[in-house]
Design a protein around this nucleic acid. Sequence first.
DNA 1: GTCGTTGCAAAGCGTTTGCAACTAT
DNA 2: ATAGTTGCAAACGCTTTGCAACGAC
Lengths: 149, 149
Amino acid sequence: MSTTSVESVLQTLREHGLRMTPQRRAIVAEIMSTSGHISPSDVARRVRERVPGVNPSTVYRTLDLLEELGVLSHAHLESGAEYHHSSEAGHVHLVCSKCGGDESLSVAEGERLKDLISRRSGFHPDLTHFAISGLCAKCRRTAQAGRAS
Amino acid sequence: MSTTSVESVLQTLREHGLRMTPQRRAIVAEIMSTSGHISPSDVARRVRERVPGVNPSTVYRTLDLLEELGVLSHAHLESGAEYHHSSEAGHVHLVCSKCGGDESLSVAEGERLKDLISRRSGFHPDLTHFAISGLCAKCRRTAQAGRAS
DNA sequence: GTCGTTGCAAAGCGTTTGCAACTAT
DNA sequence: ATAGTTGCAAACGCTTTGCAACGAC
């Protein structure tokens, strides 16, 4: 499936008069094989491990480009911007401030929340752009137990 | 009221065996006079304009300290971390991705949302820690008009 | 051959650190 | 006098930039 994605990206690039290079192939492959999200600097690091010589600046330029083309999206987590393939866009990130765990609200739940907010405030939120920080169920239980004792 | 705040901060510092210095006074004053939020580097810049010689590192250390003491909080907006006095914590930031406008969900609405999410997902969100990106009512209307034409 | 793409090297930016000097208490 | 605090200067990590060489088409 990673191959399929690379092919479709190649397609997209061609439609825009852009080119597929080994570097881009490596970068796309890296992100497509990542479930969840990954920071630009991590992409740079990992791509570099596999294909020595890929320059960080190329990674940054490629990420920007792929996002403009709609292949990738980024969201803001605690550690900063993180990229993921657009097929994973739509997920609302729930990041636990205690254990660092990263859950996802279902797309349906996300939509419901979105509608609710927009109906009440007139503001149309994109709940996927920023993560939502908080306590996961597990850490919350621990915290309560601590309080009780 | 700015004075009151500075006094109460002084109080807090004393309780912890810490000291009130001219630099801290300037930093606290700057933040207390800011309605809304301000980035660390902006605090550094502004404080510097008023009290030349205040080193950026002092600003960063002070912000960290004041946050640990509960005097300040920070939230993540598009531009990164932003500080505000704790009395303004509780606000859910709604940031328009088009015009950059920054609205607030009422505290009551925020609470309702929070309860709703936690009831459904088991995750207890702090909706104030990250902003919520989206389109404000105004920009959304513009966008729709554009689409219709 | 054209023109998009890359690597390089440098600079930019915000932020952090160690340490000696300073100062609020 | 004692510790907390500051400025300095350097280092840091991530990201961006200009430009000449390169290479996909």
